[in-house]
Simulated assay, not measured.
Amino acid sequence: MGLTVAEIKRRLQEADEREFAVLERSLVADARKGVRDAVEVARRRIEAERAERERLAALYAYERELAQGRGAGVCVGLDEVGRGPLAGPLAVGAVVLPLEPAVDGLNDSKQLKPEVRERIALEVKRVAVAWCVEYVEAADIDAAGMTASLVTAFRRAVARIEAAGVRPDVVLLDGNPLRLDEREVNVVKGDARCASIAAASVVAKVERDALMCRYAQEYPEYGFDACKGYASPAHIEAIKRYGLTPIHRVSFCTAFTQPALF
């Protein structure tokens, strides 16, 4: 081709799948180590990009199949964040996605780095037909228990979606049955299998994390910006030293509490 190794590397780095196939054929006789290494790096990138496209397509296809199997059209995906923390609310996200455009990188929120989650959450909000996040506060969790709090939050979230003018035919719920709605369809590991459930998990996680960062300014001793209310060693030590705040779940903290100081 008469190109330097650096020029070939640059072209391989910029090539899409079709362009890579042409370049690879043209370089088959080039024995330079730098070229062979660059071809292999590009091949791995192309394979990873293809796998990601297929994963994302499956995320949307699985949801369409669930809806079509029930003779339905509009799906709302629901997912919760914050079931286990010692402090802060339970958050439930609800999202109705259009078939197009797909949200690049959409995945279970636990599989995404914080900066990627934030980017994807913004894109979900931009393209969604409707979305919301509902909270159940710590005192209500203490009073009602977690299962009842989940049902309450899920029902509120569906009601808000409907109040926005969107009537879902299917309510897709991550995890085990809660029997909160006659339209309920349960999907185990749904945040990694259904597009709208994944979107709900991302939006709920980003919104709740931002809320806990605001609480960190109000209660700086507890490091809520870092632990997000979960039982980190530093958080437990702060509870032992300072007691509980109004956003702590008292029923979750009985092993290491003293009277509240707030």
Rank of each mutant, 00 (worst) to 15 (best):
D209V: 04
E237L: 01
D209E: 13
G165Q: 05
Y135A: 08
P85F: 06
A6V: 14
R179W: 12
F252Q: 00
A72G: 13
G73W: 07
E237G: 05
R155V: 01
P114T: 06
E118C: 12
V5K: 06
Y230W: 07
G71Y: 03
R249A: 13
E218G: 08
I236L: 15
R43K: 14
G71M: 01
V151P: 02
V76S: 05
R50Q: 14
R160S: 12
A48R: 15
Q68W: 12
L178C: 07
R11I: 07
V22M: 11
F224C: 03
T147V: 15
A153W: 01
W131M: 05
I236P: 01
R119L: 09
E207A: 13
E80H: 03
L150C: 06
G223S: 07
P101D: 10
R11Y: 03
A38H: 02
A15I: 07
L56K: 12
P220W: 11
A204Q: 14
C75R: 07
A226I: 04
V151A: 14
I197Y: 04
V166Q: 05
L23R: 08
A195D: 06
E207K: 11
A143T: 05
D181H: 05
L78S: 04
K125H: 02
A204E: 14
C253N: 08
K9F: 10
L66H: 01
V74G: 02
R241D: 00
D181F: 05
R241E: 13
A67S: 10
M212V: 08
R18C: 09
G165H: 03
C253S: 11
A128Q: 08
G77M: 01
A91Q: 08
